[in-house]
């Protein structure tokens, strides 16, 4: 009896928490089906016309293309750099190892507004053009710590004796790396890169300073539309994005 009463006491805060967490996403999905001209709850019938409009809007299609290109390049770059750094830091005996690991996490701690402006200013002073090059660089910096953390966590629990065994059995260093080490660590590298892709796909704050002509990403497009006027197309676009990201996260889960 007391235990049940105790559990009842948790219900109000839990309702608040899960409402705050999930309702914003749910309402975006629901309003994408409205028959009205603004994103409202569809009381009187459902329609998929906003999804049709989505595929016909050239600006949206171009924004999706940009976001995919940026996401792929940024996650590959972050994947390589995050993995290389994690390997190096875990396997080497250097001084200030812990402090160096903290420095690697600075891109999470400094506001993306400041990172965006910094990369814009320095990049343009050395001649890096805005648009793809700058956005990809910025996104790889912003997502690098996540790959680093995920791969490092895997390496810290790695049984180094497996590599010793491989070497003892006659494989050389490269063979050991490809046949033993990589297959064990690969799932965490892929998981890190998928996370990097998802973060890149949703990044707005730093990106707003770095876009060039014709390289607006999806979040930039959504932000402009939110500020100017609201059409249910935005809800449809956001819903499509939510679906894409959840599929990606599911894939990541399956791999690891």
């Amino acid at each position: 009896m007391r235990a049940r009463l105790e559990r009842l006491g948790f219900i109000p805060p839990l309702v608040v928490v899960f409402t705050l967490l999930l309702l914003p996403v749910v309402i975006v999905v629901v309003t994408s089906l409205t028959t009205q001209q603004s994103p409202a709850i569809p009381y009187d019938g459902l329609t998929l016309e906003w999804y049709v409009e989505l595929t016909q809007d050239r600006q949206i299609v171009s924004a999706i293309q940009t976001s995919v290109v940026v996401g792929v390049f940024a996650s590959v770059l972050a994947g390589i750099m995050g993995t290389v750094t994690a390997f190096g830091l875990v396997r080497s005996e250097i001084r200030f190892k812990e402090s160096l690991a903290t420095v690697m996490l600075l891109p999470i701690m400094i506001s993306p507004v400041i990172i965006g402006i910094a990369i814009l200013r320095f990049g343009s002073s050395i001649g890096v053009p805005t648009g793809y090059p700058m956005i990809i660089l910025a996104h790889s910096v912003l997502t690098f710590p996540f790959v680093f953390l995920i791969v490092r966590a895997r390496l810290l629990t790695f049984d180094a004796r497996l590599e010793d065994a491989s070497r003892t059995l006659g494989a050389n260093g490269l063979e050991t790396a490809f046949n033993v080490t990589l297959p064990i660590v690969a799932p965490s590298i892929v998981a890190g890169m998928l996370l990097a892709f998802v973060i890149s796909f949703g990044e707005f704050t730093a990106t707003q300073f770095l876009t060039g002509v014709g390289t607006d990403t999806v979040p930039i497009y959504i932000y402009t539309q939110i500020q100017t006027g609201l059409s249910p197309v935005i809800s449809a676009l956001a819903t499509a994005l939510v679906a894409l990201m959840i599929v990606t996260s599911y894939l990541g889960d399956r791999i690891t």
Partner: peptide
Amino acid sequence: LVLLPLWVAIIIRFFGVRLF
């Protein structure tokens, strides 16, 4: 369910709160 929103772009979640 707690982790699910992390996969949704933050701009979309703010947009959802505002729509509400």
